[in-house]
Simulated scan of single mutants.
Amino acid sequence: MTGADGDGDGVADWSVETVGMELDAPFGISRGTTATAESVVVRLTDGQGREGVGAGAPDAYYGGTPATAMTVLPDLLAVVEGEPPGRLQRHHAAFDDVVRGNPAARAAVDVACHDLHARQVDRPLHALLGHDPDRAPRSCYSVGLAPPEAMRERAAAAAEAGFEHLKVKLGTDRDRERVAAVRDGAPQASLRVDANGAWAPHEAVRKSHWLADFDVAFVEQPVAASDREGLRFVYEHSSLPVAADESCVTAADVPDVADRSDVIVVKLDKAGGVWPALRQLHAARAHDCEVMVGCMVETNASLAAAAALAPACDYADLDGSLLLADGADPFAFDGIRPDGGLDLSVVERGSGVTGR
């Protein structure tokens, strides 16, 4: 099969699979701890044999699992089959008609379309989006919830590797001890903290005061995603800026949180891909919010596309594949360096992802 336009640029074939990957150490947040990560991978081939690769990391919190993703992917892929992959507006409108939820599955198809389209026009994805590779911020490294000494060692190793920014996962009754351990392990690092919605509003404000003493830059998702008034209370009384992640899933959520957040966290896996993530990013800018591009623990097949958004953002949290065990990821991307630097100049075409 060739594309609908008849010139071989349409999606002629596709395949999907799941990939399970071991982490280099168990990774904990306030909602639980995991030792493995699973992504769904989509490959699209056009009529001239060019291939685009995309992936998504389904998370039940955002309405999807690997099993549900694999169930709905054939319906999503039926939308793009025979079509030029660059018709993203048309594709996403049709996605809404055939599948509810499952943003990571949508993201996998969207990323594969972006990758294939950029390869067809022989341009890097970041250039196709109009982004300046020299403006990409450095990625932070996430220090997961663990005993304080383990978090100190993790922070020290990340600082030794060259990371300048660390994100510290919190949400326990020993948060101060954990932050102190991280600060001891990485005394020069810029710290951000992420409670993943674990704190009550007054608790978050109290903790913000002593967190400021550790030179923390901002606190991410201090209260439950549904607690909009709690988020406002923290925003108005906190000693630190506030970032909204779980409270701001798509562009439609931005107006509801923009008057109670300083930073909006954009992720392909919760927004549904590059196209809707860009809409969320621009909505955040229109409301005078800063933006951080984030990720799940996932394969480079999706992180490479997220990195293409980084130049348009103030902060980056794109360490997902760096948390995997050596050799666990079947894909490589040289644009995210082991020290957190983002070097998009190495991308020649597409997202820049390659198979190992």
Rank of each mutant, 00 (worst) to 15 (best):
M1D: 09
M1V: 15
A4N: 09
D5V: 12
E17D: 09
V19T: 14
G32N: 03
T33W: 03
E38I: 15
V40P: 09
V40E: 05
D46E: 01
R50F: 10
R50G: 12
E51W: 03
A57S: 03
A57M: 10
A57P: 00
A57K: 00
P58E: 12
G64T: 12
G64M: 02
A69C: 15
M70P: 08
L76G: 08
G82S: 07
P84N: 06
P84S: 11
R90Q: 14
A93Q: 15
R100A: 15
A104I: 11
R106D: 07
H114K: 08
A118D: 05
R123Y: 10
G130Q: 07
A136D: 07
P137K: 10
Y141C: 00
E149C: 00
E153A: 15
E153R: 15
F163T: 00
K169N: 00
R174C: 08
D175A: 01
A180E: 15
D184Q: 14
A186F: 10
A186K: 05
Q188K: 08
A189P: 01
L191E: 02
R206W: 02
W210K: 05
A212F: 01
V223T: 12
A224Q: 14
A225P: 03
R232A: 10
Y235C: 02
S239F: 04
S239M: 07
A244E: 07
T250H: 00
A251Q: 11
V254T: 11
P255R: 10
R260F: 12
V265S: 13
W275H: 15
R285V: 15
E290V: 06
S302M: 10
L309V: 06
P330N: 07
D334S: 07
G335T: 03
G341N: 14
L342G: 09
V353W: 01
G355A: 13
G355S: 13
R356A: 06
